Amino acid sequence: MISKLNLENILFLDIETVPETQHFTELDKTKQELWEAKSRYQRKEEFNAEEFYDRAGIRAEFGKIICISVGYFTKQGDARLFRTTSFYGEEPHLLKDFKNLLTSHFSQAKHLLCAHNGKEFDFPYIAGRMIIHNIELPYKLNLFGKKPWEVPHLDTLELWKFGDYKTYTSLKLMTNVLGIPSPKDDIEGSEVYRVYYEEQDIDRIIRYCEKDTIAVARIFLRLRGDAILEADEIIHV
């Protein structure tokens, strides 16, 4: 049961991604054709491949990670604290910095990674981008040969489903129904492409990503029946 897990052994995280280039025309011809084929089913007849390209960031083969925000619980005397920090910049560098955190502080069997829809998005996306950049996968992301119960990942979406695999509940909806402050009070995921490429405001994206990470931690606490994480318990490093 999740109520028996030690909070200090869990690394909460969220990632923000964008298409690998700002414009579809910046891709080489082969990559354009591959995106046209990959996106055909989803866009159907409503958009052509170029018009649909702003959504390429959700695919690890056509996108890139621009921010990984993490958070973890610590104790200061009897006080509970939640420390957050973010990795950003050139993708190879932020991936290596994130890997260093995993290998130095969250590499033991007791350690777990937690994200919302992380098993279908965040964790495989990070792993895929590491492989693309020739970065050896850290133990916590290398799932080859592992049985389902050996995978060191928690997913608040999966926990909320309680075995129902038919539905998807967004982070925004979950915070709403659980009475948690929404992380979407400035921008939402669909706006990250514009903020990154047009406004070039990475600080705004970092703040947004950290809010999502905090929201994941708050949802996890609610699922455990623990006291809500208050603003004065959060430390931005």
Rank of each mutant, 00 (worst) to 15 (best):
K4G: 06
L5G: 07
N6Q: 06
F12E: 04
L13H: 00
T17P: 02
Q42I: 14
R43N: 08
E45A: 11
N48M: 02
E50D: 09
A60M: 10
V70P: 05
Y72A: 08
F73S: 05
T74F: 03
R80T: 05
R80E: 07
F82C: 07
T85G: 01
S86A: 15
F87R: 10
F87G: 02
L95K: 11
L95Y: 12
D97K: 15
D97Y: 03
K99S: 13
L101C: 06
T103Q: 14
T103N: 14
H111A: 13
L113E: 09
C114H: 04
H116G: 00
G118E: 02
D122T: 00
P124M: 10
Y125H: 10
I126K: 09
G128K: 08
I131G: 05
P138H: 06
P138C: 11
P138Q: 14
E150I: 06
E150K: 14
T156C: 00
L157R: 00
L159M: 14
K161W: 06
G163Y: 05
K166I: 10
M174K: 03
T175L: 00
V177E: 08
L178F: 01
P183N: 03
K184E: 10
S190A: 13
Y197I: 04
Y197P: 01
Y197S: 11
Q200D: 10
R204A: 07
C209N: 14
C209F: 06
K211Q: 13
K211E: 04
T213Y: 05
R218Q: 09
F220R: 00
R224N: 02
D226G: 04
D226L: 07
A227F: 04
A227K: 12
E233K: 01
I235W: 05
H236I: 15
V237Y: 15
V237E: 15
